[in-house]
């Protein structure tokens, strides 16, 4: 059995990555509070993830942009926007937007929920696979902001009154919250918990 840090009386400061004795309550370098394991992070992550999942509904149902083109007002949801791009023969962009706006948030939420389930309910999943998945989610999650980024730029630049105008719709807020909350959910989770729970089962690997 592999020896863990807590087993040898060492605790990592999550702030400055200083190894401290488990007996210390505060990091001897940065004076941050030391936790050998942060069990509350699991709850936080769950809460954030569930919130994000709830918000994902309005983000997809409600229009994300209001585009006024020659007096014609067009409400686009994320999906209708992608369809519009597809119809406009802009498939690559449609794919990028689809990936960033629909695929990534869903993957993140699903992935995180699997991750959290694995920790909470001791689901026997290969530790290695989980970690790879976790890193992938963390990395890709930030790209989901692409859509919001595009919207914010468009809103700032395209403002010609009745002729051509783009405005963010309520879904944009929801979508932004989804991205934010998933990111936070990934961030607050103390990944060391995974190791505690999965270590014994992982011996077989």
């Amino acid at each position: 059995m592999k020896q863990q840090g807590k087993d040898i009386g060492l605790c990592l400061c999550k702030m400055c990555r200083q190894l401290n004795s488990t007996e210390l309550t505060h990091c001897q370098r940065c004076q941050a509070e030391l936790h050998i394991r942060d069990y509350s992070s699991l709850q936080k992550s769950w809460a954030l993830l569930i919130t994000a999942a709830i918000l994902l509904v309005p983000a997809n149902i409600y229009p994300i942009t209001i585009l006024t083109n020659q007096g014609q007002v067009r409400h686009d949801t994320i999906f209708s926007g992608i369809l519009h791009l597809v119809n406009s023969d802009m498939l690559p962009i449609a794919m990028i937007v689809f990936t960033a706006s629909i695929l990534v948030p869903w993957i993140k939420i699903i992935g995180l929920s699997i991750y959290l389930c694995a920790i909470s309910f001791d689901i026997p999943i290969s530790k290695k696979k989980l970690m790879v998945g976790f890193h992938a989610i963390e990395w890709i999650g930030r790209w989901s902001m692409l859509d919001l980024f595009v919207i914010s730029i468009t809103v700032a630049l395209v403002n010609m009154g009745q002729l051509l105008d783009a405005k963010p719709a309520p879904a944009a807020t929801a979508f932004a919250l989804v991205i934010l909350l998933t990111q936070l959910a990934a961030k607050v989770l103390d990944t060391r918990l995974l190791w505690d729970r999965l270590e014994p089962q992982d011996d077989t690997n």
Binding site: I54, L55, V57, L181
Partner: peptide
């Protein structure tokens, strides 16, 4: 329970209202 659980409740309420 962490207070963080208020967050999904609020979101849920919001969504429901919407």
């Amino acid at each position: 329970f962490s207070p963080i659980w208020l967050l999904p409740i609020v979101a849920l309420a919001l969504g429901a209202w919407l």
